[in-house]
Amino acid sequence: MSVVEGTARPAPIPVEIGRARGGPPRSKVLRRDLWWLQPLAIALGLAAFVGYGVWTAFRGDYYFAGAHAHYLSPFYSPCFVRSCPTDVVWGPAGSIGSVSPALLVLIFPMGFRVTCYYYRKTYYRSFWASPPACAVADAGSTKPGGARSRYSGETRFPLILQNIHRYFWYVAVLFAGILTWDAIDAFRFGPNGWGLGLGTIFFVVNAGLIWAYTLGCHACRHLCGGGLKRFSQAPVRFAIWRKVVSPLNAHHQLFAWLSLFWIAWTDFYVYLVSSGAIHDPRLF
């Protein structure tokens, strides 16, 4: 695609490449602080979550507290397959095979997080070391002619696909709605009873954190008002942009981690209750 209509390939910026730079070689890290600690901690945190997620997604059992309370693990919601409990099944039960229900739905929240602007920063730094930390050279960039001596960022396949983030956001809103329904459903105990268990609180917090993360998304910030040139002509969108989405966006990193942790915790709590390891205390 041309730069602008009717022009050919973009001309390079007129700058002389390859002139001598000052300071020691880039391979020498001059930072004295523990610059490696943050990417390492993030790598461990993400790896722990992925490890837990794989275990729980392939488990295929103990994801619904059932007889005791309507606690459905957020990893398994919405539940579509034949083996889903009748209390929580969505859609035409039995039409889809008997794989773990989590495997059918996790691709959507996973895609949302993988293409998220914040998570992109974390894994580019922690796993791809591009860069591992500020003012620390990209891995492999100091070896001339090496496999990683050149860098194209998100201009080419596959990383150009990061641009589909907003489509995952559309689906993520749907999922936030479903998890909100699950939180409401967590107030149901037995066939006709309503109440409040410790797990109910976990589900409500889970839905709240998911909404905080989803509405703080950068794509949401753009779609709800950030893309406008004149806020003064769209006061409602401006109010949403300024008073709701931008404040959440400022804490996107926090909510990304809190919601990630809390999903795993909620799932683990359901596992403990449904497997009989612990008893869910009823508050009333």
Partner: peptide, 13 residues
């Protein structure tokens, strides 16, 4: 195209 926006991988340095 010309300003190379896609090169940025938003690592926020």
């Amino acid at each position: 195209e010309r300003m190379g926006l896609g090169y940025c991988n938003i690592t926020k340095c």
